[in-house]
Amino acid sequence: MRFSIYRYNPEADDKPRMQAYDVALEPTDRMLLDALVRIKAHDDTLSFRRSCREGVCGSDAMNINGKNGLACITRIADLREPVQIRPLPGLPVVRDLIVDMSQFFKQYDSVKPYLVNNDPPPEKERLQSPQDREELDGLYECILCACCSTSCPSFWWNPDKFVGPAGLLQAYRFIADTRDQATNERLDNLEDPYRLFRCHSIMNCVDVCPKGLNPTRAIGKIKDLLVKRTV
């Protein structure tokens, strides 16, 4: 099978290049990650992140034939040859398919992604109805792979100012949690022409999310809450 893979080693290369590989795959190689691991067995200089190989850890996000996705759950059989593999767009490349994710995580941190509840904790669990808990479905499952934010033009232009879909999804995850008491502060933190309102509902995030989550909807709900708060 034929691949064309983005290569860049800052120690050796002046500029990035695409390298062609033609590898014989085994019947057990089902996912793109299997193919990358096989290529690496022959060319150990090819660098990429990977860990769980089942779509839950978020390590191996990359741009595959023009679309962001996780290599470990992208079926080889569904890919057009030569398979074009590039690093996630919009973030600085450290080497080959490895990007510097600092900016992405900085935005995640900026939404204070943790529960704020200043009441003394009860002896047992805080109660939450199943209906209230359901509000967190579609939010807490985010694996921070960055497929969404790095496919978002607004994030490309303003990665330092726009929180991006992943961070906003997590902002809403805590707003939606009945146990959290910081909704107002969270809304204050986002009421800004860039942080939240750079989202123009292009919906690339929804299109690429390997977990089938919908950041655009969560962003819409935050916007609704801000509107409600002012009237």
Binding site: K124, E125, L127, L136
Partner: peptide, 23 residues
């Protein structure tokens, strides 16, 4: 066990819930 699980809940762990609101 109960102590560390309740602590996790207090930290915000999104456990599934029973009808009465318990874990």
């Amino acid at each position: 066990a109960n102590e560390v699980v309740y602590e996790l809940e207090h930290l915000g762990m999104p456990f599934d819930r029973l009808a009465g609101g318990k874990i």
